[in-house]
Write a protein that binds this DNA or RNA. Structure first.
Lengths: 187, 187
DNA sequence: GTACGATATATCGGGTCGATATATCCGGGT
DNA sequence: ACCCGGATATATCGACCCGATATATCGTAC
């Protein structure tokens, strides 16, 4: 179980929880929720769906609409629900990485505050490490890098700093007002 | 030759042009230039270096420092220089993608203005497509997404918009003042 | 009524990552 | 002098992911 496949499993289980659907639709949802960030290819999705069926985390409802091509609708089982919760609640350093963080964050509504805070703080720490490395090789006098490489450096640094501020804001909101403020749209 | 391997080839040839070095150092430089973004693993780097040697794009200078472990220093050949230039100058849609764009941008100092503008504009168009998709599924009334998913959406949209503005600034600078302004640090 | 694009599932080859193995060098502690 | 840990350095392997491609059906526009 690699980092990536764990993240994909979380995304699949989380999305199927909202409503059962078939593979093609599922992939579009991953696109939507993760906002066009590297979504899963079909070559990854379909084999993984079969694997999750084998493990009993999801089940396939065949939907044989007369004459239509087979459309396999998937739904989470209770084992799948548990697996989802344990992936979300037990999130470790894997969840501090770019893609994995986004998936976890998208499902924050189903995690309690302690878990949310741990993931947010882990993510921030991860970005601060990155920031420290960035700053450690700030272009110095006599650097061979030309203006474009320096501009790329500046832009990357700025983005990372902004993300840290974003996380800090989220953490403060969680600490002070609980889930209000961030989760205004929550039902 | 996939997108990714083409990008890695450009990075390797471009970095070795600045100064010959061995694999371990090369990987650190990729980290530095690309700013911690997904750098190459050793399992990718070493086989690829051997491939580039086979193709005559780089050569290995064995540096047998008495008693020391073999350290293979690589340097670009003239064929490698040409390959680098053709990869940079002939950059197509592959170069509009995240990682590939960064690598190309880092080597803008060795591309002429027409090429720089084409890549910048291609990249901007790519981001605007992404933006359009984002906006197309803006969370509407009655959306099942909770506050966190909406916040993730908002943050992603904002980042993409900022990147478009960044590119627009760069394009304007290229168009008006040539390479000044952006490339102030150029030697 | 047919051409086209979207929907839908499936598979394969090439290639990448992450872990691991091996080995040397250097500095710090004792 | 000795050892230890961490950085330097090369190499390989298995797990697995992406992108392309094949196949087939549906809606709709002309």
């Amino acid at each position: 179980m690699t980092r990536r496949s764990e993240m994909l499993e979380l995304a699949i289980l989380g999305l199927l929880h909202d409503s059962p659907m078939h593979g093609y639709e599922l992939r579009k949802q991953v696109h939507r929720v993760l906002g066009t960030v590297r979504a899963m290819s079909y070559g990854t999705l379909y084999p993984r769906l079969r694997l999750l069926v084998e493990r009993g985390l999801i089940v396939e409802h065949d939907t044989p609409v007369s004459g239509r091509r087979a459309r396999i609708t998937y739904a989470v089982t209770s084992a799948g629900q548990q697996r989802f919760q344990s992936l979300l609640t037990g999130a470790g350093p894997n969840a501090w990485e770019d893609d994995a963080f986004d998936v976890h964050f998208a499902f924050f509504g189903r995690a309690d505050r302690a878990v949310r805070l741990r993931i947010l703080e882990g993510r921030r720490a991860r970005l601060e490490e990155r920031l420290a490395m960035y700053r450690a090789n700030r272009p110095a006098e006599g650097d061979t890098r030309d203006g474009y490489a320096v501009e790329l450096y500046r832009h990357g640094l700025e983005s990372a700093e902004r993300d840290v501020r974003w996380l800090t804001g989220l953490i403060e909101t969680e600490r002070s007002a609980g889930h209000r403020g961030v989760a205004q749209h929550e039902e």
